[in-house]
Amino acid sequence: MQTQIQPKTKGKPGFLRKHWMDILVILVVAFLLFLLFRSIYFRFNFQKKWDTFYYHFVTNNGYRRLLTGMRNTGIIASLGFLIGLFIGTVIALIKVIPPYRKITRYAQKVCNLYVAFFRGTPIVVQLLVGYYIILPLIGVSMTPLASCVTIFGLNSGAYVSEIMRGGIQSVDSGQLEAARALGLSFPTSMIRIVIPQAVKNILPTLGNEIITLVKETAIVGYVGAVDITKFFQDHAANSYEYMVPYLIMALIYIVIVAVIAALVRLMERRLQNGNRK
């Protein structure tokens, strides 16, 4: 019975006939790239560039500072995100309280102002204003790292609040009703029932927010914190060699973002399984 069904393709001739267009395109592109790289290679001395980089990075122990930079990027992005998640959740909660009481309405106005401010100005400006104006004015001294964590937390709080509000509104209103009808308070119902479901719905968007945050941390050099970008900037300036460090910098960011994206996808799948059980 099984032998009646024979695969019709007979190896290479079929493959070529099917894909000759693709192969042609690939060959042409490869040839063009080859020309491009050849001209670049003869214009720049890559061996020398690499040697310079290697000297400063390895022999001169530059990599140690890179580790600090990566740690700082990680701290600012992750702590900032956690703070943002907390602030964002609180703001989203305040925004979805039925506005019966005056105090609710005032709180909602304050939240709107907060979100409008942090979404309406560039984060570099927030960082500079926070570090060079607000902190001295209120007389608090903070390390650059701590102030970056704070600003990034406050900033991401504004974005997360909008994401979270969308998530909360996407949860069927019957869920809250059932919880309230059982005599659970509004905050308890939200925290136990609505927000877990909201978070599940917005997980991809939250993942994007983390990635955005990681990328935005590249500006913390403005207030003297050393992150990945700042490290490579300094490295390049000290060695008068820009190409290799910046290329590696870009690669590091790409890898970090890819890893986070993969983690988020994994988590998403986990949560979905939890519901299908």
Binding site: D172, G174, Q175, E177, A179, A181, G183
Partner: peptide
Amino acid sequence: HRRHIGMVFQSFNLFNN
């Protein structure tokens, strides 16, 4: 007081999570 008043909905509203 709601704790002593049960309510059953048309659309069940079991907690999905």
